[in-house]
Structures are given as structure tokens and as C-alpha cells.
Simulated assay, not measured.
Amino acid sequence: MNIQTIKSADSSTQITVKRAAGTGTKPSASSAQQLAPAATEGSAISLSSSAAFSSHASDIDTAKVESIKAALKDGSYKIDSSAIADGMLGTARDLLRASSR
């Protein structure tokens, strides 16, 4: 896969993606017809500067982020490994329940 990024003077960005010629698998006849144009042509995406990644102030608690940064810097940030383990086990339980349905 070849990915090319071009930035223009008006702050927009164009990204072109081209697939490699061979993927190592043999597609069926019907999927080969569908994939043939995509394999030879590129896909282009243009992003304007207004489409740049942004976050809303309500999405991020900046005060909490700053307090965590300060605690990391001064070495006072404590990690509760049992809470992390409990969370991971809870997620695993939820995933197992969801997959057994």
C-alpha cells in the first residue's frame, strides 16, 4: 500500500492511497471483478483546515488533564493496579457474555 500526503497552500491536505498489486491471496472471480478497479486506481481524500481534528471543551476536562500532568511531573501520580485489573476482568466478563448470546 502506498500512502501519499500533499499539503497545499490553502491549508488543505490531500491523501492518496494506492493498493499494492498482489496481496498473496486468491480472490474469487466475483470479488476479483469488484477489486480490479480499486487495485489500479487510487482513492483521494481532501481535508480542509476546518476539518482538522478538534475537540470541544466539554469533551475534555482540561483541569484534570493538567493535574495529572503535574502529578506525573512531580512523581506523585499513583496507579491503582487492582482497579486496572478489576476493570480488565470486568471487560473480559462482558465480552464473554456478549459472545455467548
Score class of each variant (00 low, 15 high):
residue 42 G to E: 05
residue 60 I to S: 02
residue 46 S to F: 09
residue 27 P to R: 02
residue 35 L to W: 03
residue 38 A to K: 14
residue 14 Q to K: 10
residue 41 E to M: 14
residue 23 T to V: 08
residue 60 I to K: 06
residue 29 A to Q: 11
residue 17 V to C: 10
residue 29 A to Y: 06
residue 34 Q to E: 09
residue 27 P to M: 07
residue 43 S to W: 10
residue 40 T to I: 10
residue 29 A to I: 07
residue 20 A to K: 12
residue 19 R to I: 06
residue 43 S to T: 12
residue 15 I to A: 07
residue 34 Q to D: 09
residue 51 A to S: 11
residue 64 K to L: 14
residue 59 D to K: 07
residue 29 A to D: 02
residue 24 G to I: 00
residue 29 A to G: 03
residue 19 R to A: 11
residue 17 V to A: 10
residue 37 P to K: 04
residue 16 T to M: 09
residue 44 A to S: 14
residue 14 Q to S: 13
residue 16 T to D: 06
residue 57 A to R: 05
residue 55 S to K: 13
residue 21 A to F: 02
residue 28 S to K: 05
residue 50 S to R: 13
residue 24 G to H: 01
residue 38 A to Y: 07
residue 51 A to F: 14
residue 34 Q to G: 03
residue 18 K to V: 02
residue 59 D to N: 11
residue 28 S to P: 01
residue 33 Q to G: 12
residue 30 S to K: 13
residue 15 I to D: 00
residue 29 A to H: 08
residue 26 K to N: 08
residue 46 S to Q: 14
residue 42 G to N: 09
residue 39 A to L: 10
residue 56 H to N: 08
residue 14 Q to N: 11
residue 58 S to M: 10
residue 27 P to G: 00
residue 41 E to C: 02
residue 59 D to H: 06
residue 18 K to I: 02
residue 52 A to E: 12
residue 24 G to D: 07
residue 56 H to V: 07
residue 52 A to P: 00
residue 48 S to K: 14
residue 32 A to Q: 11
residue 14 Q to E: 15
residue 32 A to L: 11
residue 30 S to V: 15
residue 27 P to H: 00
